[in-house]
Design a protein around this nucleic acid. Structure first.
Lengths: 195, 195
DNA sequence: AAAGCTTGTTACCCTCAGGTAACCGTATGA
DNA sequence: TCATACGGTTACCTGAGGGTAACAAGCTTT
């Protein structure tokens, strides 16, 4: 039925397609047959490119995580002061959510199914994101607590995004990012004042 | 091996045990045999009390959700002004996390596996929690946005908790709740000022 | 102590889905 | 035009695990 494709192209296509399928239906509710069908191909083809379902899934997580990471860190670097970093960071985050939609669902959607290994990967990604944010938090509080609050901010962005994405709402990432950043920044300063 | 138990007691015991097992290993990685073994009993006994694995799992989610809901709403009601409500709410939340540990992981842990139905249930619980929080947010911004921010606050608490619980850290819910509440409250006021 | 309800066990069925062996068809290069 | 490599398919194996039928062992009530 489907056209013959050179191996690397097929691999890419499989990755593209499976992000969507997994994001929509979750890991366990998606069979390799489903993926194959969505790719217009049969199961053994998948196994020519990936060792196992796990392997495919982890590759997807990894790729999605990379895109998130680079989007946020690029944005943060290009900012001058803490406040601006906060703004740029959140705006980049929501921009990523808005146009890498399926990747977001894959990593953080309610349907994101997680066994041992995937959990580790996702946690790592979250932790790295938090790490990128941590410096924004006033340096005069103990680092332990700093990291905890950073995780909280990540959760904040995640919560907002999940709500919007799963409702199917569209949103302007710049506006939303700015609003959430305002909120977060004020919160951060409050923590600072108290120590 | 195990003692005979009257039906209601057995049912309770199964619920107690399975919260732990599911929380620790996630839905799909936990077989009914695992649950049965943990309960010191064999599989068919489980099916005397629950129609299916789904059924059991949903019962757990429901129970956990109820405990969360009542904990938070009780706390919020007993407070006078918005600031106090915020403080009481967050403290109650973290108190719940601290001593209903497994329930938290079940609902919000990384390993929380979610098919169609469970997702709906969990979303409902999150939404209800957000709804309880929404009134705290300044009334002069549009309700749509209000709800979105409320989801963000829920995410904030969730993110902080997940980080701590999954690291196995112990924490004082009162102190942590107060700190997060300070942060949240400042953020909320900032949103208020902007409209 | 026998009937009968309740609790529990053993041993099984059956489906689903991950994974693979063996085979086909077409483009390419000698 | 024949060989061969590569992309793809059909048809199967297999294990895990949800769910159940049939039977055993206790209480309890008369």
């Amino acid at each position: 039925m489907s056209m013959r494709l050179p191996a690397p192209a097929r691999r890419e296509q499989i990755l593209d397609v499976s992000v969507q399928v997994f994001a929509r239906n979750g890991f366990h509710s998606t069979s390799m047959n489903d993926v194959a069908e969505a790719a217009g191909v049969t199961k053994p083809v998948l196994y020519q490119h990936f060792d196992s379902k796990q392997d495919l899934y982890l590759a997807l997580l990894e790729e999605a995580g990379n895109r998130l990471r680079t989007a946020v860190s690029k944005a943060v670097v290009s900012a001058a002061n803490g406040k601006e970093q906060t703004e740029m960071g959140f705006r980049a985050y929501f921009r990523w959510v808005a146009d890498d939609h399926d990747a977001f669902l894959l990593l953080f959607g309610s349907r994101a199914n997680r066994d041992e290994e995937s959990t580790t990967t996702i946690r790592r990604i979250t932790a790295e994101t938090a790490k990128a944010i941590a410096p924004l938090i006033a340096a005069d509080i103990d680092p332990e607590h700093q990291r905890t609050l950073a995780q909280g901010l990540v959760g904040l962005a995640e919560g907002v995004s999940r709500h919007l994405v799963e409702r199917g709402d569209t949103f302007d990432p710049e506006v939303l990012g700015q609003q959430v950043a305002d909120m977060a920044w004020a919160g951060l300063r409050a923590v600072h004042r108290k120590g």
